[in-house]
Simulated scan of single mutants.
Amino acid sequence: MVPPLALDIDGTLTTGSGRIDARVFELLPDWNAPVVLATGKSFPYPVALANFLGRAETVIAENGGVVHVDGETAVLGDAEAPRAVVEAFRERGGDPVWGPRDTVNRWRETEVALSLDADGTLLREVAAAAGGDVEVVDTGYAYHVKSTGVSKGQGLERVADALGIDPDEFVAIGDSENDVSTFGVAGRSYAVANADGAARDAADVVIEESYMDGTAGVLADLWTRDV
């Protein structure tokens, strides 16, 4: 049988221009095992994608801050401390770039995402001064100010437990430092060619192709092995 999957979205199921690759709708709807969408995006995004794929809403959002499986939603991150860090960042002259009406953070429950055009050095300095409960993660698409106590990997452990599946059975595919924890939990991990250094170092295999080209190749190989 094909293995259960833990899939990042941005940079993994997308094209180089950031669009969802159409092959997602060819390869994933009939995948005969659980598919977990694990992303740094806020909760509505992976839920919407799961629905468009016709799959169960099994998602890890906000880098592990929100986990949804078997109809149950767990909010695991603490938004108060990240928001305080961003406010202190503003007071120090930092500009989050995205305005108060941005949709990036409109539905975000446990963290705050800032544009990569923001001053990352200052942001990390402010986060460090706040103590050890908050960290800044650069996903290649945004700076995420989040609780240190949550991660995609911990989210995958929670999902696997709810589904009655050994985490070691999962195959994980991703492209960023926020996927490192997922790679550490899954039994087999792949980094697409566009992955950052942290993801490449943590993965069992670095794929030669980028974005969905790489992911599609892995999925096709896993499907071929099954048949």
Rank of each mutant, 00 (worst) to 15 (best):
M1K: 08
P3I: 02
L7A: 03
L7I: 14
I9V: 12
G11P: 05
G11W: 01
G16K: 05
G18R: 15
R19D: 14
D21T: 10
A22F: 14
F25S: 04
D30C: 11
W31A: 10
W31Q: 11
A33C: 11
A33M: 11
V35P: 02
L37D: 02
A38L: 11
G40R: 04
K41T: 14
P44I: 15
P46T: 00
A48S: 14
L53S: 08
V59K: 03
V59W: 00
G64F: 01
G65Q: 08
V66F: 05
V67F: 05
T73G: 02
V75G: 06
G77N: 08
E80P: 00
P82Q: 14
V85M: 11
V86F: 14
E87Y: 14
A88G: 13
E91R: 13
R92W: 09
G94N: 03
D95E: 09
P96V: 03
V97F: 09
G99A: 08
P100F: 15
R101T: 10
R101L: 08
R101Y: 04
D102L: 13
T103N: 13
N105S: 15
N105L: 11
E109P: 10
E109H: 07
E111L: 10
L114K: 03
L114T: 12
S115A: 12
L116E: 13
D117S: 09
D117R: 07
T121S: 09
L122E: 02
R124K: 15
E125K: 06
E125T: 06
A127H: 07
G131A: 07
D133F: 04
E135T: 15
V137S: 03
V137W: 01
D138W: 12
T139K: 03
T139C: 07
T139Q: 04
G140L: 12
A142I: 04
A142K: 07
V145S: 07
K146Y: 07
V150D: 00
G153P: 00
E157T: 06
R158F: 03
R158L: 09
D161G: 10
D161W: 05
D161R: 13
A162H: 04
L163N: 03
G164T: 11
D166G: 04
D168A: 14
E169V: 05
F170A: 00
V171Y: 01
A172L: 04
G174I: 06
G174S: 12
V180L: 05
S181Y: 02
T182Q: 06
A191G: 10
A191C: 08
A191T: 11
A193K: 11
A193H: 09
N194W: 10
A195C: 15
A202T: 08
D204R: 09
V205T: 15
V206P: 01
G214W: 01
G214N: 00
T215C: 07
A216L: 12
G217E: 09
V218I: 09
A220R: 12
L222E: 02
R225L: 05
V227I: 03
V227E: 07
V227M: 01
